[in-house]
Design a binder for these strands. Structure first.
Lengths: 198, 198
DNA sequence: GCTGTCATGTAACAGGTTACATGATTCG
DNA sequence: CGAATCATGTAACCTGTTACATGACAGC
């Protein structure tokens, strides 16, 4: 029950059509939220039915019409109410972490490859975010209001990617220093030999 | 399609019943994964039907019987195959971040309260993880095999909580220094007055 | 005329959450 | 006897993902 509210924030920043919202969810707001257009259409329809948004058909030159959504006064009240509610701490769910933890039960080299690939992705994204920071917020100390909020959330995106890069680097360094193949001692799993390369 | 595999990892570490798994998912494995007992029972039933696990009814003294699940050879193959597959980078989804970004559209003081509460939670959890680290892994440089994997995933939990503490602290410091009430200038929202305290 | 993009959607399914139901046993 | 804990489950619902469908116009 939170995509609704993410959409309300996005629409208060700038009224938009379903597709435009989907694109924006790949960018700025997308540091910490994501949604596909199908989902957005569904939720938008419900929000319209509930009177949280208003719709205007907008004719465009050389393109199909679009429906532009904007937050209604009722939607503003809903948003303001939601913002003041406590948010429970959400547990992170990471498939990669499960693989790291379970690496002994398969081909450890393959898991290291998977981790390396993820590390590369996170490095790329970190570089991208840092570029955005430089380009869009060259003077952060002067920011106020919503612009400051946007900047601080981007900072979160940067810090999160740094977390990934540092953690995965620590993992790879420990794993590569203390292997390959973990010579001798594996007290668990006496009979089976799970470390064979495929 | 990943709870299955998380359960396979957990069951290879130690065969267990549905409830025991649910409890473990609140602890160690729970740094990066979580599931309720209802969900676990459902998935366990499917895994049994698919032949990934074997079940043994275990009579207990002074307690109801339990069904102990263990990974079957077929399950081991499934797990090994999954471990070698690439994992796509999962986007974090954070309600709190949406609130931080949208704070201008409601009562900013209330949002700061929400952030403070979350910061306190993350500090607590960080302290707990650091305690686990000290207690369960006093000599990390000597670890190998699965024990090293466990330690490194715990390290990830610690780093993640540090990320939260640092980010939310940065947010609060910037926000408290550069306010309260962001005197004057709010180019957005000329008519309405969303900053009133509740 | 074909391909690509903009734009909106439907349908089926998979995954996760919440509420409820049941039964045994221990402890006060 | 009542409450708490262990243990297993069902049912309803909500969310999210994937695949597909449709139509208009733009450019080659």
């Amino acid at each position: 029950m939170a995509l609704e509210h993410a959409l309300l924030v996005a629409l208060r920043e700038q009224p938009a059509s379903g597709l435009e919202l989907a694109k924006r969810f790949g960018r700025s707001i997308g540091f910490f939220w994501h949604a596909t257009h199908q989902q957005i259409y569904r939720v938008l329809a419900r929000m319209d039915a509930d009177g949280w948004v208003t719709v205007t058909e907008v004719a465009q030159s050389g393109r199909p019409d679009k429906k532009e959504y904007a937050v209604s006064p009722a939607g503003e009240r809903v948003l303001a109410g939601w913002l003041a509610e406590p948010t429970p701490m959400e547990p992170l769910r990471s498939e990669l972490a499960v693989k790291m933890r379970g690496a002994s039960y398969g081909d450890r080299g393959a898991v290291l490859e998977v981790v390396r690939a993820n590390l590369a992705d996170h490095r790329l994204r970190l570089a991208h975010y840092e570029q955005l920071e430089k380009r869009d917020h060259p003077h952060p100390e002067a920011l106020t209001g919503h612009e400051l909020d946007q900047y601080l959330v981007l900072r979160g995106g940067i810090r999160l990617e740094r977390f990934w890069v540092e953690w995965l680097t620590e993992y790879l360094e420990s794993r590569q220093a203390r292997s390959p193949e973990d010579p001798a001692r594996s007290p668990e799993d006496p009979a089976r030999s799970p470390e064979e390369s495929r």
